[in-house]
């Protein structure tokens, strides 16, 4: 192998990611040509719109051209950062998305950080205390939380805390026409974010508990744990330096893969709580057959997942010493 060490490893991974993104770009084009239904019919429900006028719009969006030509056009425009015009909002799809990204990031990043930290800690404890009451309690709760779908959990939380107890708002990101600024505004946002974030934490955190627990149980059964015991190390040192350090490897791997599922979760949670993010946008775009926006969100999601996996791969190459050399041998 010509490329050696971490640089070579990184270059190979980035190259693979580029190929993946191109494949997604192609698939993204094909999928929207395969779906049934005519977007123009959605745009102009008015029966008075004549066939000539429809044809005119069709020509303007380039939909009358052969598929091959449409594809080249799509690639060319994509390269220029043009993802089309929203059928519904009549402005560039990319702008439509850009408006929604910060809200989604705020929700998902906050919730994921909490979920990963809590989930890993509780999972490690459960694995360490396998078979005890502590383990059963953690495992049962985690399994229940993980098996309830995000939208269902959202509705339950909303019913209890927003509807019955009225502690939290029913939805949205801030109190309408409140005129809050500065700290007051952010406090209001946090208050609105609590339930949707809790929903993501429950669902994602439950999964991390299960994952870390099984990785921990696996690590604890390895021979190097007996070696560590034979050294006379303290239990805390065995847990931290030997068991957890190894148990985290599969957990990191899964994080990248899981991001794809987080997309599904975020669509559900944002829709239930009317959170003005990308997930809610996808829901609206599907309802309105806003193909350019859908196409653009799919691309953004796909690139985000590929990027996340790339980061995970690079981190993995750093935390697992066997990976770097593995590429060379």
């Amino acid at each position: 192998m010509a490329l050696k060490g971490f640089a070579g490893f990184a270059i190979r991974k980035v190259g693979a990611a580029c190929i993946t993104v191109f494949a997604i770009v192609c698939a993204n084009f094909v999928i929207f040509r395969l779906v049934p239904g005519d977007p123009l019919r959605m745009m102009f429900k008015d029966p008075r719109v004549s066939a000539e006028q429809m044809q005119l719009v069709r020509e303007r969006f380039g939909l009358d051209k052969p598929l091959g030509e449409q594809f080249l056009h799509y690639l060319r425009e994509l390269a220029h950062g043009n993802l089309g015009i929203s059928f519904w909002q009549k402005r560039p799809a990319l702008d439509v998305i850009a408006d929604r990204v910060p809200q989604t990031l705020l929700l998902i990043v906050t919730a994921l950080i909490i979920a990963v930290i809590l989930g890993t800690i509780l999972g490690a404890i459960a694995g360490w205390k396998m078979g005890t009451r502590t383990d059963s309690v953690i495992l049962t709760i985690a399994l229940s939380l993980y098996s309830i779908p995000a939208f269902c959990m959202g509705i339950i939380l909303m019913l209890i805390f927003a509807f019955q107890l009225s502690i939290f708002p029913l939805g949205g990101i801030s109190t309408a026409a409140s005129g809050f600024t500065g700290f007051e505004y952010w406090k209001d946002v946090a208050w609105h974010m609590f339930l949707p974030a809790l929903c993501v934490v429950f669902w994602y955190g439950g999964e991390y508990v299960l994952l870390t627990r099984s990785a921990m149980v696996d690590a604890l059964g390895q021979d190097y744990i007996i070696t560590a015991r034979a050294k006379g190390l303290k239990e805390s040192a065995i847990l931290k330096n030997h068991a957890l350090r190894n148990a985290l490897l599969p957990v990191v791997t899964i994080t990248g893969v899981n991001l794809a599922f987080a997309v599904a979760g975020i669509i559900e949670v944002e829709t239930v709580f009317s959170w003005p993010g990308i997930g809610r946008l996808v829901y609206d775009a599907v309802m309105k057959r806003d193909y350019p926006v859908l196409q653009a969100t799919f691309l953004v999601f796909a690139v985000a997942i590929v990027l996340a996996n790339l980061v995970v791969d690079l981190i993995y190459g750093y935390i697992d010493p066997r990976i770097k050399v593995g590429g060379e041998e």
């Binding site: 021979d223 190097y224 034979a230 190894n246």
Partner: peptide
């Protein structure tokens, strides 16, 4: 353990911490 009585295990392949 380790100080008074030490032990070498069978199967050194997995007896060392890989990371």
């Amino acid at each position: 353990r380790g100080e008074g009585i030490a032990m070498v295990f069978q199967g050194a392949q997995n007896a060392l911490n890989p990371v």
